[in-house]
């Protein structure tokens, strides 16, 4: 099993004491699977994604990737998981503003020491970014920026792609084309894709869907 989540609990400090966000979530994903995570605002879907991606630590419960509990890891080990196993695509601010598009795409792969220039070039071309390689993120449109983020994630060939409303800031046509590319390439690299969305239409394109309500799977 690529991903196994068991009894995951997460609270955040609130003004009136701890605020429960996730309240005992358990789930699994196989390699190459696609899964949509839907729910209302504040239902905890982004938090679940962050915990799965090793971006945050659960209060209790386990997050196992390839059989290892990343919840019990220290900061450095979790960073290594982010670098090597997972690719995260956020709704915005994915890119490093001080680096060019080319450097951004190569960034994660190079961090993990898995740079593959040919594959990167291929990705960029298929993403329609070949002309933009020496530009800086601020010079790109929102759709282009998200495509760079996807290219960067795929360039590192992660086993698990985590996407948090990756097309939330884009118009429908752009969102569809970005989505197409992401699915196509995920399939090609045999990566599993866990995507948070509140769009029924996008959720419908994934293999499976889970609905979160008030920190529990519905």
């Amino acid at each position: 099993m690529l991903l196994r989540v068991t009894d995951l609990v997460k609270t955040y400090p609130g003004p009136d004491g701890p605020l429960p966000i996730l309240n005992g979530i358990s789930m699994e994903m196989k390699a190459g699977a696609t899964l949509a995570l839907t729910g209302e605002s504040g239902s905890g879907k982004s938090t679940l994604l962050h915990l799965v991606g090793g971006l945050d630590q659960p209060d209790t419960g386990r997050v196992e990737i390839d059989g290892t509990d990343i919840g019990a890891m220290d900061d450095a080990a979790r960073a290594a998981v982010r670098r090597d196993k997972v690719g995260v695509i956020f709704q915005q601010f994915n890119l490093i503003p001080s680096l060019t598009v080319a450097s951004n795409i190569a960034f994660q792969a190079r961090l993990g020491g898995r740079e593959d220039k040919e594959w990167m070039g291929d990705l960029a071309a298929r993403m329609g970014l070949a002309e933009q390689m020496s530009k800086y993120p601020e010079q790109l449109s929102g759709g282009q920026q998200q495509r760079v983020a996807i290219a960067r994630t795929l360039a590192a060939r992660p086993a698990l792609i985590l996407a948090d409303e990756p097309t939330g800031n884009l118009d429908e046509a752009t969102a569809d084309s970005v989505m197409d590319l992401m699915l196509e390439l995920a399939a090609e690299t045999k990566a599993a894709l866990l995507m948070v969305t509140h769009s029924e239409r996008l959720a419908g394109r994934m293999g499976r869907r889970l609905h979160l309500r008030a920190g529990r799977l519905a």
């Binding site: 991606g53 971006l55 900061d75 450095a76 960073a79 290594a80 982010r82 670098r83 090597d84 995260v88 956020f90 601010f93 994915n94 890119l95 490093i96 960034f107 994660q108 961090l111 993990g112 960067r152």
Partner: peptide, 9 residues
Amino acid sequence: APVWAQGLT
């Protein structure tokens, strides 16, 4: 944040 998210502690 993006640098951190991509694997720098």
